[in-house]
Design a protein around this nucleic acid. Structure first.
Length: 267
DNA sequence: TTGCGTGTTGGACA
DNA sequence: CTGTCCAACACGCA
C-alpha cells in the first residue's frame, strides 16, 4: 500500500487530468457521463493514505477516494494500453502521458468522489484507528490490551490500528512468538511491546524491499514480481519453521486463514 | 466437474 | 461487547 502510494505520489502530484472515464456504477451520486467533466482540467495536488484507504486530492477540493480491497490495483499505464473489462476508472494525465487505471478483477474495491471536507465524516474513514506506520508503542499496546478479543482478528480490525492485513498479521505474530488465537487482554505488556516491534520490523523490511509481498502484486507501472519478500509462515503450511524446524500449521481464526508455528507461538 | 482458497469489509444475527 | 456466518466476485488449482 505505502509503496503503491509513494509511487503514485511521485508520478502524479502536479499532473493535470485531461480526460477521465468511469466504468463502474459504484458512484451513485455521480453519473458516469459526468465523471470526466467533474475531474478533467483539475490538477492532482496530493496523494494520501490512511490504513488501506487512498485519496487522490484534486485542485478544486474534490477527492477521489479508493479502497483496493482484495484485488484492486492502481496502475499507471501507457495511453495505448488496451482497456479491460475490469477497469473501473481511468484518468489520463498530462504532461506525464500516462493513464491511472483502477483495475479490479474481483470488483470488491470501492471508489468515491467527495468534497475534501467530507472525508473526515466518511464512515469507513472515521472508523479507522491510527495508521500502523504512525502509531506509538504505548498507544498500540493500550488499544490491544483494553480489548478482550482473539489477537489475530483484533489486529485485522482496522479500528484497532489501520493498515494491517492477513499476511503481515501472520508474519508479525510469528515474529513476536504470539499464537494467533491468543486473547488480547491476557497478553502481557511486554509481549505486546514485542508485537509492536515485530509489526514495525516486518513492515519496515517489506517497505525497504519495495513493498510487495505477494505473487501478483505489482508496482504502479504494472511490472510485477520484482520484489519478493520471503514469508516465514504465510502460506507455508507443512513447511519447516525457520526458527525451530517444526511444521508450520494452518488454521482458521476469525474466518481468515492463519499460518503459525505451534512450537514458537504461544497463547 | 466440483469445491476450495485467495490480499477485505460490513451487515445480520446470537 | 464478542463471535459467527454470509455476501460482494473472478479465477487458479486439485
Amino acid at each position: 500500500m505505502e509503496t503503491v502510494v509513494a509511487g503514485l505520489r511521485r508520478a502524479m502530484v502536479g499532473q493535470r487530468i485531461v480526460w477521465a472515464r468511469l466504468l463502474t456504477k459504484q458512484l451513485k451520486k455521480v453519473n458516469p457521463k459526468n465523471f470526466s467533466k467533474l475531474v478533467a482540467g483539475k490538477t492532482v495536488c496530493a496523494i494520501g493514505r490512511k490504513g488501506k484507504q487512498i485519496t487522490v486530492e484534486l485542485s478544486d477540493g474534490w477527492i477521489l477516494w479508493v479502497h483496493l480491497m482484495m484485488t484492486g490495483k492502481l496502475w499507471l499505464l501507457g495511453l495505448d494500453t488496451p482497456e479491460t473489462k475490469f477497469d473501473g476508472a481511468v484518468l489520463e494525465l498530462l504532461p506525464l502521458g500516462k493513464k491511472l487505471v483502477f483495475y479490479d478483477q474481483r470488483r470488491f474495491g470501492r471508489i468515491k468522489l467527495l468534497k475534501k471536507e467530507k472525508l473526515a465524516s466518511l464512515p469507513e474513514y472515521a472508523r479507522l484507528g491510527p495508521d500502523v506506520l504512525e502509531v506509538s508503542a504505548p498507544e498500540f499496546v493500550g488499544r490491544i490490551k483494553k480489548r478482550n478479543r482473539v489477537i489475530k482478528p483484533l489486529l485485522l480490525d482496522q479500528t484497532t490500528v489501520a493498515g494491517l492485513g492477513n499476511i503481515y498479521a501472520d508474519e508479525s505474530l510469528f515474529e513476536a512468538g504470539i499464537h494467533p488465537a491468543a486473547t488480547s487482554s491476557r497478553l502481557s505488556r511486554k509481549r505486546l511491546r514485542r508485537l509492536y516491534s515485530a509489526v514495525q520490523g516486518v513492515l519496515g523490511r517489506a517497505l525497504r524491499a519495495g513493498g510487495s509481498s505477494i505473487r501478483d502484486y505489482s508496482a504502479v507501472d504494472g511490472q510485477r514480481g520484482f520484489f519478493q519478500i520471503e514469508h516465514k509462515v504465510y502460506q507455508r503450511t507443512g513447511l519447516p519453521c525457520p526458527a525451530c524446524g517444526g511444521k508450520i500449521r494452518r488454521s482458521v481464526v476469525g474466518q481468515r486463514s492463519s499460518h503459525f508455528c505451534p512450537r514458537c507461538q504461544k497463547k
